[in-house]
Design a protein around this nucleic acid. Structure first.
Lengths: 229, 229
DNA sequence: AATATACCGTGTAGATATTACACTAAGTAA
DNA sequence: TTACTTAGTGTAATATCTACACGGTATATT
């Protein structure tokens, strides 16, 4: 089985858990593999690290090659290294996650032919995944659950201008529970990281809501504070 | 430079950041290296992962070989993979941390001759460290700072029977700030994970304090709750 | 123009948690 | 007996959290 990686008897790879939010649902980016092992299976975007690149650089490159996505800040969250996790040898995988805005400019065009296609899949409706990618995904999801309670990273999933109701939906979907509208707004606004744009939603069929933007300047101080709803 | 690892052009290692508490100070376990590179330098205990062991197993084995310590629960916290971090090739390192009781049964007897000696060093007084171990240590320390605010892992640093003042000292040393005695006790006891042993300290030259023990049964529910002092 | 629809946006009271703060009690040592 | 050192305790003011309901407003329909 090892002839595919003849020169290595141990190596390492990157796998990326990318979250997106669309139509009120949390999505994860999966590729359909075009190579053995697990050819034609769905998998997290990932590949081997090159000799001359750091893990962070590698994560950015691999994501770009498999999806066409660039300039995303990804964060390492765990390294998976069970002995049998990869059928072709001892390959450990450093896992990264990121949250990003869907639609518009972020097109999904695999540049490598290692992936047949890349798609955003509803996390409630995942197909069987290659390797130990289900485990990696599960841990990535746990990670962002914990993280949105501490830092307002939910913004990263929304368009630049968003309404408080949209923001609340993101929290509800990730945390998996309903939140109280008044308490949510009170708390969110109390952080002083939202800028009221004095502008209304367009194209909705009922009363339009106020649009807000995330105010990066006021951000830093929130780190490490627990947010509970 | 690569002849020391002739059969590998990339591989991975484990480094352990082990915390202990002694004489009112936070200590970290360091070894004095007995091999090139960085022979005679101080370093975190760490070594290469074997082909047939998982990362967790490897961490336990390496710790045992370098220090004689066994049966410690260690947790992975980050993987360091900059290109130039190891002079002998592309070696990434998966870092683990643990907190443990000093003294008594946990003797420090290196079993491998890769380490000349192992010592508990005050974290305020670290020597220059080999490789990128200063960075690994710094991140490990940050990790436990965040963690003792969420989970009462500070017990792991103390003897089985301890006083509330001792426990407060652990918090103060790790967090790097003084805490209010009454508030600390009130809060700590409110978690209901301390068992009053109806027993007093012995051998102290002033009024003896009540001893407590950590009650494992009552533990679980605390996970994920923010504790702030 | 009138009406129905659906989402927007707001306040308060009670409960709980956090903070700041200082003295007496108890044991040991001289 | 006295001096010393640490143990152990309560309260009031403030801040945060929770639960809870309705009128306002833009749009669509008739």
């Amino acid at each position: 089985m090892k002839e595919v990686l003849p020169q290595l008897n141990s190596t390492f790879s990157i796998d990326c858990v990318l979250f997106g939010f669309d139509e009120g649902e949390l999505k994860v980016l999966l590729i359909e593999r075009n190579e053995e092992p697990f050819k034609d299976w769905w998998a997290l975007p990932g590949y081997l690290v090159n000799e001359n690149e750091s893990l962070d650089q590698s994560a950015a490159r691999i994501l770009h090659e498999l999806t066409g996505i660039e300039n995303v800040y990804m964060e390492q969250f765990y390294t998976f290294g069970d002995v049998g996790r990869h059928p072709q040898g001892r390959i450990i995988s450093v896992a990264y996650y990121a949250m990003l805005r869907l639609g518009g400019d972020k097109a999904l065009k695999p540049i490598s032919n290692y992936a047949k296609q890349a798609h955003w899949i509803n996390v409630k409706d995942l197909p069987p995944l290659a390797f130990d990618h289900q485990k990696i995904f599960d841990q990535g999801l746990e990670k962002i659950k914990r993280r949105i309670k501490h830092q307002p990273i939910a913004f990263e999933l929304l368009p630049e201008k968003f309404t408080l109701t949209q923001l609340q939906n993101v929290y509800e979907v990730i945390l998996g529970k309903k939140l109280d509208k008044r308490n949510f707004r009170k708390k969110m606004l109390s952080f002083n990281v939202l800028k009221d744009l004095n502008e209304k939603q367009k194209g909705v069929s009922f009363r339009a809501a106020t649009l807000y933007r995330f105010d990066k300047r006021k951000y830093g101080k929130l780190f490490g504070k627990e947010i509970s709803f």
